[in-house]
């Protein structure tokens, strides 16, 4: 298949050791656009937009940052944020750098935890990319929607 120069660069940056240690694709062999489309369909089923999810994730991140590295009890959820030194670019290649912030959100009700980075929030909002299956920071849209109790029943 013919690929534009941008596309070619794109795939390289998603590989291990380029921006993060194990890359963004995990063991997913699908094309980046197919992953985005498949995850987008899950959101559609629940009548949610990318920005809805990203806003909610940002909210938790901002609450967590206030307590520096400690745990923050938000009633139904417990949030903890780790902030490491340095900045990283987005693999989609637009200019700008993102701080290395990792957020843990634990739901007391379901006893489940999700983990995401500030970069994942950006990628969900801007590109609809939730990570390749099996990658370290992959968020499963359905898990996130259930944990954050967003959207309707879906089906």
């Amino acid at each position: 298949m013919k690929q534009t120069p941008g596309e070619q660069q794109l795939e390289i940056r998603f590989r291990p050791g380029q921006i993060t240690k194990s890359g963004f694709m995990g063991d997913d062999t699908r094309h980046i656009h197919d992953i985005i489309e498949a995850d987008g369909k899950v959101l559609e089923r629940f009548g949610l937009k990318k920005a809805d999810i990203a806003d909610r994730l940002t909210l938790f991140m901002d609450e967590g940052k206030k307590e520096l590295e400690g745990k923050v009890d938000l009633g139904e959820y417990v949030v903890q944020v780790h902030w490491a030194r340095g900045l990283m670019p987005c693999p989609f290649g637009e200019p700008g750098l993102h701080p290395k912030v990792v957020v843990h959100v634990f739901s007391k009700a379901s006893r489940q935890e999700i983990r995401y980075s500030q970069l994942s929030v950006h990628m969900i909002r801007k590109h609809g990319f939730w990570g390749g299956k099996g990658s370290v920071f992959r968020l499963e849209p359905i898990d996130v929607i259930r944990l954050l109790k967003m959207g309707g029943n879906g089906e």
Binding site: T20, K21, A84, R85, K100, V102, V136, F137
Partner: peptide, 11 residues
């Protein structure tokens, strides 16, 4: 040096 999750150099 503090270990950064998924950090290339710190790992």
């Amino acid at each position: 040096i503090r270990l950064v999750p998924e950090g290339i150099c710190t790992t």
